[in-house]
Design a protein around this nucleic acid. Sequence first.
DNA 1: TTGACGTATAACCGAAGTAGCATATACTTT
DNA 2: AAAGTATATGCTACTTCGGTTATACGTCAA
Lengths: 108, 108
Amino acid sequence: MDLAFRALADPSRREIIGLLAERSRTVSELLEHFEFTQPALSKHLRLLREAGLVAVEDDGRFRRYRIVGEALGDITTWLLHYRRFWTGRLDALGGVLDREAKKGRRAR
Amino acid sequence: MDLAFRALADPSRREIIGLLAERSRTVSELLEHFEFTQPALSKHLRLLREAGLVAVEDDGRFRRYRIVGEALGDITTWLLHYRRFWTGRLDALGGVLDREAKKGRRAR
DNA sequence: TTGACGTATAACCGAAGTAGCATATACTTT
DNA sequence: AAAGTATATGCTACTTCGGTTATACGTCAA
């Protein structure tokens, strides 16, 4: 989990996750959204890969990145152990989660 | 959020959160659970403080630490935007969260 | 008031992370 | 095979991290 938390500690990498959440993208597509250089992006992607947060797939001469949910799930599960500490938000959160849980059951 | 994610990237600091989740503790109480020195612990605690994850209160000559939920809530909320990526776990998670949501409603 | 206790900070260390530039690798098209 | 495009890695300089020892400071007890 260290790697996942560390990877998400950087705003650019969180933004990458946000972009990949919309749809999978190649490196050059991702690059359009950032100011920094391509090697810098590749390094961010490597960290995200090593943290298990994203995966790559060869796509001709491109490399297509996508989100891998498991690592995100791991750390979220860890965090949810402490959800009672922000119970002020439990109303809003609870609503969302309750709906989500129902959806989950329905899908089963 | 950078600081919170970064603070949680260290296993010792996550353990501190776990200990403080049981109950608030003084520095020396926390120290019993670790191998490293007191200054090392103080540094971890400083990072957790700066990330807004914990707060201190003077208690005579002791300093008592406790969890502050808001920062945990912030990052968890961020992560939950991507929960659809680990829907395989949604069953187990959904069960927990559903119960939690019900408890929230009951407590209201 | 003196001394022990509890905690924080400072100074320092080696290891590891970060950013920019240059370069290597790999696939595609001609 | 050559040239172009897409992506990854190396290198170097700089910063940060996690730990240590030494020390400062406030509080309590005697």
